[in-house]
Structures are given as C-alpha cells and as structure tokens.
Design a protein around this nucleic acid. Sequence first.
DNA 1: ACCTGAACACCGTTCAAGT
DNA 2: ACCTGAACACCGTTCAAGT
Lengths: 218, 218
Amino acid sequence: MSAASTSSRDRIIEASIAILDGSGEDGLTFRALSERLATGPGAIYWHVPNKGDLLTAACDAIIARAMNAPLVGATPQAIIRTLALGMFDAIDAHPWVGSALTRAPGQLPMVRILERIGRQVSALGVPDEEQWATVGALLNYILGVGAQNAANGQLGRTRGIDRSDFLDAVATTWSQLDPDAYAFTRSMAAHLRGHDDRRDFLAGIDLILSGIEASRRL
Amino acid sequence: MSAASTSSRDRIIEASIAILDGSGEDGLTFRALSERLATGPGAIYWHVPNKGDLLTAACDAIIARAMNAPLVGATPQAIIRTLALGMFDAIDAHPWVGSALTRAPGQLPMVRILERIGRQVSALGVPDEEQWATVGALLNYILGVGAQNAANGQLGRTRGIDRSDFLDAVATTWSQLDPDAYAFTRSMAAHLRGHDDRRDFLAGIDLILSGIEASRRL
DNA sequence: ACCTGAACACCGTTCAAGT
DNA sequence: ACCTGAACACCGTTCAAGT
C-alpha cells in the first residue's frame, strides 16, 4: 500500500493508457509500448501475460477511478444516475474503455460496476429473483452506449474526421434514404446533428429507472 | 433482382459468414477466405474495399434476414418484443454480429433496426422530441447484450471452453471475492449458473417498455 | 473487367542469451 | 529476478503482371 513506489507493471499500464488515449486501440502495440518505456518488447511479457490482459488491466484502472468517486445522492435512483454518468464521462474521456469493457465479461472491471449498481438496485427494493435481470438491464444499456462511443471515437481517428463532421455525414446519408422504406430514420436525421449524447444517455437511464419503479408497483 | 444469379460479391459475403460462424472473428482472413473461394487474396479487393466493410456487409446480410421476418403482434409493444427477440436469436446464432454491429455506427445494419423499432416507438405515441432518446435506449440495450454475447462466444472459442464451463468459472471466482467489498456480486454468483439469457434479455426489454409507458402517463 | 500471387510493412508472441 | 532483441508465424493491403 506504499503509494510512492510504482511497480513495473503499474508503469506499463500507465504507459498503455497514455498510448490508448493518444492513438486509440490500434496504436497500442508492444513495439510502441516498449519504445515509450525504453525497453524491448519481450520485457513487457515478464509483467503482463498478453495483449488482452493488458487492455483489461488498463480498462480496470480507469473504471476503478470512476467507481471509487465519492457518491453523492439522497436516493438509490440518484446514486444510480451518478454512477451511470460517471461511466459515461469515463468512456467519453477514454473511448477505448467502451470496447475493452465488453471484451472482458465477468472480469474485474465489470464486477466493479455490477457491485456498485447492484447495491443500489437492492436498496431500491427489487426482489431477489429480479435483481439479476434488473442490474443486467442497466449494465447492458451502459455497455451499449459505451461500445457505440468507442466505435465513434475509433472511426473518427482512423478516418481523420471529428465528431460533428461524422454526424453530418450520417445525417446526410439518412436524409437521402428511400422515403417509404426509411421514413422513421429520415425523420431522425435532423435530430442527429444537434443532439446531446450525455443528456440522451441519462434519459435512457431514467427510462429504465421508471420501468423498475413501475414494476415495483404491480 | 434476378434471385437466381449470385454475384462474386455475394459469394464472398456468404463465404465470409460461413467462416465467421465456424471460426469466429479471428478466423476471417483474406487468406482463409481466398482459399475457400479458390482464388488469390488480391481478387477479393476487386469486390470489397477492406476488411471492415466486408464484416459490415456480412453483418448486414444477417440483420436483413432478421428484420425482414414477418411481424406478428397486435400492439406496438408486442412487435418491439418480437423484433428484439429476433435480434437476440440472430446474435445468438452468429455471435460475431454483436461486435460487428457496434463497429458500424450509423450504417445500414443499424439503420434497419432503428427503422423497425422506431416505427413502433412512434406508434406507441411517444412525442417527437423524445423518440430519439427512446429508440436509443432500446437500441443501446440490444447492442450491449449483443456485444456481451459476442465476447462470450469469442472467449469460448479461443480458450476452448463452452458456455456453462465459463459461467461456472466466473461464478466460482465471484464467490471467492471479499465478502464486504463485493457482497452484491457474491450474492449473484448462484444466479449466474442457472439463468436463462433469453428470458433475462426480454425482462430488460419489458423494463424499458414499461418505463416508456410510465413516462407517457405523466 | 477481373484475377493472380509475390511483396511490403506491419503485428503478437517466444526464447536463447545476457545481467 | 528481470531484461534484450532477433526470430517465427502470421496479418491486411498493394500492385505489376496476366487473361
């Protein structure tokens, strides 16, 4: 627990996060990593078993910070909203976390989120046999948004276009779709441009929360 | 529209689906693909611009079949349930579709789902300015489950363990977590073994649907 | 117009050899 | 105990050359 000392493994993970933030998932390479750490590719394998585990460890470092933030909120609902927003902001700042999360099912990063949200679902009074499905709904929704954010970030980097240019391009494509076959999608093209991701994310959380409350009243 | 003729591109996509189903995402290689098609790797590039687009095209073929199935259901809610289950079953049969979907945001596969679900959300009477967030909640939830299914399938293949062995391993790990720090996760370990993914998936859809209905009543 | 297959510039991972 | 760096077995993609 000596906060001062930093192990080789910690340095590897920190360097990985820096590379992932700067160059995305494709940028994280054992060669790039070893260059940054002024060592050989083989050295890293002494501390980390493979690339998948390295990505999960980097992901876990981010999730741990987000989930250990102090929880303000009077009600379980308010705390769930705070936790969900914490996840959104973490993934927004580190888009690669969104895809890293889904690739490590049942592992530590996911468990941290499961635990935090699960306790609030329990506090909400959801009966035991419904808790798993209820937490799952919240978790999978957060995961879906996260994965989508990750994909957008990745696309933006590889094609060198920023977010609003990308949304513009999608909106244009949508508005040129067949009016009969894609009436709804066309009607959404306009919304696409100006919409606030964070606000929409929270609206989804609120929808699930009110669904939980409605179920409780039956 | 001559259904009898099959273009080279169609043959490439069919072969890709066969490889993806049999060997997973890592198995889809331009070399493996060209071998199956009895041609050279370069030939494929005449019909498909790159691997990403190939994956999206294969994904779209699966999604198109699922979304074009005849819709039975008296109410918009019932139709949404049918559509969602269609997605679940498609991803269950082709796990790679789950991750391919998230990697093609705003593109055709996603638009097909958006359109089908969006129309029902509209039929539900959700006001225009809430439709985007509402469809997004359903879509992102489905996406999250799909991505998780894809990851499970991938993990199962690379580590050569089947689903129930994997769940067993996760349940064992969870039950050995710290009792104070991970009380909720530990209590879920038992549920993990016997749970029915498809039923839980539908429970999540119903939670969102009842959340939508509750919002409408305000 | 479409196909061939060698070649290029990379990967993750291993492993003998060092300190 | 930990690091080095060459080597192995792959990738996606390109492109001159063919038909």
